[in-house]
Amino acid sequence: MNFLNRLKTLVLVAALCIMPALGADTFKIDTSHSSIMFAAKHFGAAWNYGRFNDFEGTVVFDEANLAATKVDVKIVAKSIDTNNERRDKHLRSPDFFNAAQFPDITFKSSKVEVDGETMKIHGELAMLGKKQNVVVTLAKSGEGTGMDGGKLVGFHGEASFKRSDFGMNYGVGNGALSDEVKIVISIETKKV
């Protein structure tokens, strides 16, 4: 094979490698139409739910290549809201989120496993100065067109982790609050 043919082959291979990335679009989370909720069990009886009111993030998404999906989210810890002001103040304290010292909670994806239409988003969850690998099960929930004509894509997901892995140990030993925390995510994103 002469030099020119080898060069053409290399260019073709490079183009094929780049093509899946070209189909991916970046979507910004529309926080006014999205929810990030959590739940912890209280004295083994019931799951108590709360949410975060202040967050932002992006999703890079190509429906033809789900494995190329990327997620990057930042949550403001002090925006925690359980519909109980006294409890929220305690949750912002050093016993839990220590929001004054650690204002942000972040999740950044590292790889994606695809199972049909469901994505297992592996990524790094960072809070309280610690980082742990967490898997978020995420699926497209729908799509539409916004009032301004922009493309909208919705996603729904779930995850769970042990809060003690981040040093959040208050109430773990006495059974007052479960170590396991469940996360439920419902986000609407808009194409950038």
Rank of each mutant, 00 (worst) to 15 (best):
Q132N: 06
I80W: 03
E113S: 04
I18T: 07
R6S: 07
M37A: 13
N133S: 10
L152R: 04
D165N: 10
L125W: 10
L16V: 14
A15K: 12
G171L: 04
V11G: 12
M119D: 03
G123N: 01
N5F: 14
S93P: 00
D30H: 11
F3I: 14
R86T: 14
S34G: 06
H122C: 04
G167P: 13
K28W: 11
D54N: 11
V184S: 13
E188M: 00
D25G: 06
E158K: 11
F52Y: 12
R92C: 11
D62F: 07
M147L: 13
A39Y: 08
E113N: 11
A15I: 07
S178T: 04
T189W: 02
A126M: 07
L91V: 05
A99V: 00
I187F: 07
T31I: 12
F155Y: 12
I187Q: 07
S32K: 08
N48A: 12
K8L: 12
N98D: 10
H33K: 09
P20L: 08
T118R: 09
F3A: 11
K28D: 13
D81K: 11
K131D: 05
I29P: 04
K151V: 07
G142I: 06
Y170R: 01
L66F: 15
L91C: 07
L7G: 13
Y170H: 06
A64R: 06
V60I: 06
L7W: 14
